[in-house]
Nucleic acid binder design. Structure first.
Lengths: 308, 308
DNA sequence: GGTCCGTCATAGTTATTACCTATGGCCGCA
DNA sequence: TGCGGCCATAGGTAATAACTATGACGGACC
């Protein structure tokens, strides 16, 4: 099937006549007639009823008309996207990510862009998972980082890295050299974010998978506050390892990995496939990957790059 | 651009080699090489870097790869949809609509289907606007009727008819022979559904457009209760004309049309374009149209079929 | 460092496909 | 019943795409 055939089909549907469509397309009527027959053969069903005064769409033709529009739109988008890469990367990219990730890569990303793609301006917006998702679907932003919480219907995802979730306890305890399983946390006072928070959803999903009922005694949406509360002995917490890299003062907090390979939370670069893809935003993606890779390589972020 | 070229492109990307892709496709290597060159010429940018051990996707190639998948998927969907119409219409169609519309067309639709397409089984589900929209997006239903409340990103809409909204007052009043404007309702006690309700959203939109602040004294989501309250003198209401066809008892309720052509609320047949379109569901659409048209023609429903 | 092997690109030829002109059949209309 | 507009078919021709053979390039291996 050729886009040319689809365009011819649309023109025939528009004019209601093969002859007029042929004239409009600058080809002979029999050629267009055969093009249509070939298309109908390929689709496997008659698309037009032939009458003495032109042609009219069959029921199947009406359905196919909608689809043909979609196909042509998709091809135009494909070419437009690829064309963007011919020009120099430039322009503003609005890039939303959770605060925890923005804190880690934000500054480095801006620096890397200034060097590698100086004409690309990034506006980094901190927001939470649900908000970012809404913005992406409404095409209010160009790119976003979301946690892998299940398939998102209308968005294109490309995995970036996975963060390890670890158990945070008040002080160096008997378990800090070993590993712990989720089941062992049953009944212990857990401090976690509220149900809307992306981290909480991962915790709930994993707890459900392990068949464990966790005892969440406090719901706090600020990770720094959670670590502070743990340090003061108010409970324990499950947090991404990176978020407690700084606050691990000797004697104040203790980090314990989870058993059987640990608990990992993946996150991906997301964009809306209906949104036009610029060279600037492609640059943004590769710079983001580079920044994360170098952070991980330098040991500044205990993440892994492979898919979870 | 031909689907064949796109498939060849995908195969080259998959195998990482023009030679191997050519062998796999059963054509000679130079042919495929030229196909690729033509495709790159059409797209306007190089899609592969040629190396001594095959080819690797360029940045533009990676972008185009995603798009090519989308295009091929769309064409397959187009053909599959059209093919469905070759078979006899059969199977179950889950069709959701607001209660007010279900009451009007539900029975007639089932009867019409039994006669015209006996092997199509319909399951009519009553639900409210927001719920139906969610079901459509989640592909939990095949078809739905939604009020025209603004463009819906991921859904395909086909207008069915428009309902007239009229002013309902307690008894035959001085205005019942004439017309009324929204502005005249300012300050009068209006009974309306809650903010989630589709009807309320139409009222709010029209009031905002007219620059009128309505005084909503009661929020009731049940239309029958609203008419009863109006009959008892608790206030006035704006309702679709059809919903008060029965309750208009002489002396109990009075119907007044709105000025300047009246207030109309369109509603459309919606479906999810990602959802496979069966012959049964196409039949459902035409039977729905036929039922509405005959209802309107017989005077059983004061609606108009043209776009609002 | 030279040779070999595999890769992709190009050239020339052949086969296929698509287009054009001419014409026939069909239907509605006068 | 003849006319005019429409689409389909037929046959010749032009354009396109396929094939075989060969060239150019780069990495691997001795």
């Amino acid at each position: 099937m050729d886009t040319q055939h689809l365009k011819a089909f649309l023109k025939i549907a528009e004019t209601g006549s093969i002859s007029r469509a042929a004239e409009s397309l600058g080809i002979a009527q029999p050629s267009l007639s055969q093009q249509l027959l070939r298309l109908e053969d390929e689709v496997g069903i008659r698309l037009f009823d032939r009458t003495a005064r032109g042609v009219t769409l069959t029921e199947a033709g009406k359905i196919f008309l909608e689809r043909a529009h979609q196909i042509l739109q998709a091809t135009e988008l494909a070419i437009a996207d690829a064309q963007h890469l011919r020009e120099e990367a430039r322009g503003q990219v609005v890039f939303a990510m959770p605060p925890s990730i923005a804190r880690l890569i934000g500054a480095a990303l801006v620096e890397a862009l200034a060097e590698k793609a100086p004409r690309v301006k990034v506006r980094i917006v901190e927001a939470f998972h649900g908000t970012i998702r809404g913005w992406l679907e409404a095409e209010k932003i160009d790119l976003g980082i979301l946690y892998d919480l299940g398939p998102l219907r209308h968005l294109a995802a490309r995995h970036l890295a996975s963060d390890e979730l670890v158990l945070i306890t008040p002080r160096a305890s008997e378990e800090h050299r070993g590993e712990v399983s989720l089941a062992e946390l049953a009944g212990r006072p857990l401090i976690a974010p509220g149900p809307q928070h992306g981290l909480r959803q991962v915790i709930d999903r994993e707890a459900a998978r392990a068949g464990v009922a966790l005892d969440i005694v406090q719901e706090i949406d600020a990770l720094d506050t959670i670590t502070e509360l743990v340090a003061r002995g108010q409970g324990i917490a499950i947090l991404p390892h990176c978020s407690v890299m700084d606050p691990v003062r000797p004697g104040a907090l203790s980090v314990t990995h989870f058993a059987s390979g640990g608990l990992w939370r993946g996150f991906s670069l997301m964009r809306n496939p209906s949104h036009v893809l610029t060279h600037a935003s492609v640059q943004m993606e590769s710079q983001t990957r580079a920044v994360i890779a170098s952070l991980v390589a330098e040991g500044g972020w205990p993440a892994r790059l492979q898919e979870a």
